[in-house]
């Protein structure tokens, strides 16, 4: 299997400028992260807010540069501080953001949303651009009749389908998904997760899936990386990490995740009854 994405000792510093009440500080948001993702696989990056998981997602998506370390895409080092990624690189890596309400321009028709990456990165003629956009709308479960509509006319789940369609317009190899379902209702979440699974099979896509939700990660991931305060505290296959979490932080995350298991509920109800009996007795 070929490795699509590799990171070696990725670090990222944020400089907080000094103000009226203090000097400048440097915050190290990522402290040397290593990872590899093979073609057609999903790497899930799990962490809580402030862990650096989105920072890592943005570095992989070539939006923000890493401060140190090496990022390799298809085995070739990429450094966006030296040269802006060209159309070739942009059409390898695309991103889907968390909030489908904020990530679509409210004044841009859906058709133009989908055609814009082609206008910028390719020389495809207008008629073919339109054809491709319509085909992609159908592929993500919408229809050609949605071409001339505006984002406000769609529900959250539909907008996330549009955001996914836009990311796929350039036939990327790698898709970075930053919490793509956390703003969606449970039933819509299931539809979007199914769509992502289908698209991965169809186009042989590689996913980097940033999430805080362990039940979603368990469903979609092949490889899991748990990060906490900028460090990868646990890395391994989904089976390893879920069956046998080694790091205390991972165990803490698992323990805090609510379980919907019937036996667990039965035990809790029994405990509560016992506690109440003790109070009234």
């Amino acid at each position: 299997m070929s490795v699509v994405l590799e990171g070696r000792g990725i670090t990222r510093d944020y400089h907080v400028p000094g103000g009226l009440f203090g000097g400048a500080k440097t915050v190290r948001a990522l402290k040397g992260i290593d990872f590899k993702v093979e073609k057609g696989k999903t790497l899930a990056i799990v962490g809580e807010s402030g862990s650096g998981k989105s920072t890592l997602g943005r570095i992989v998506a070539l939006i923000d540069p890493a401060t140190g370390g090496e990022l390799l895409i298809d085995g070739k080092p990429v450094d966006i501080t030296k040269a802006r990624p060209g159309p070739g690189m942009r059409s390898r890596v695309q991103m889907v953001f968390q909030n489908p309400y904020g990530s679509l321009n409210p004044r841009q028709k859906i058709g133009n949303v989908l055609m814009e990456p082609l206008v910028i990165n390719t020389k495809i003629p207008a008629a073919e651009r339109r054809e491709r956009a319509e085909a992609m709308l159908i592929r993500v479960g919408l229809g050609p009749e949605h071409f001339n509509r505006y984002p406000h006319m769609f529900s959250g789940g539909q907008r996330q389908r549009i955001a996914i369609a836009r990311a796929l317009m350039l036939n990327p190899a790698l898709l970075v998904l930053d919490e793509p379902v956390s703003a969606l209702d449970l039933s819509v979440q299931a539809q979007v997760l199914n769509l992502l699974a289908d698209l991965q099979d169809e186009f042989g896509l590689t996913y980097v899936f940033v999430s805080h939700d362990l039940s979603v990660v368990r469903y979609i991931a092949d490889e899991v990386m748990v990060i906490s305060q900028g460090e990868a505290v646990e890395q391994g296959s989904r089976e390893e990490v879920f069956a046998n979490p080694r790091h205390p932080y991972t165990r803490q995350l698992f323990a805090a995740t609510p379980v919907t298991d019937v036996e667990a509920i039965r035990a809790r109800v029994a405990r509560r009854k016992a506690a109440r009996g003790a109070v009234t007795a």
């Binding site: 449970l186 039933s187 979440q189 299931a190 539809q191 997760l193 199914n194 699974a197 939700d213 039940s215 979603v216 368990r218 469903y219 979609i220 379980v259 919907t260 019937v262 509920i265």
Partner: peptide, 29 residues
């Protein structure tokens, strides 16, 4: 959780990723 009566409740519970049995999640629709 043990025996949901209404189809909507059953659908909601089966849409939970942790209850996924096959490759696909059943959706409410």
């Amino acid at each position: 959780f043990e025996a949901p009566q209404h189809p909507y409740t059953r659908a909601l519970l089966s849409a939970l990723p942790e209850n996924a049995t096959g490759d696909r999640l059943p959706t409410v629709s």
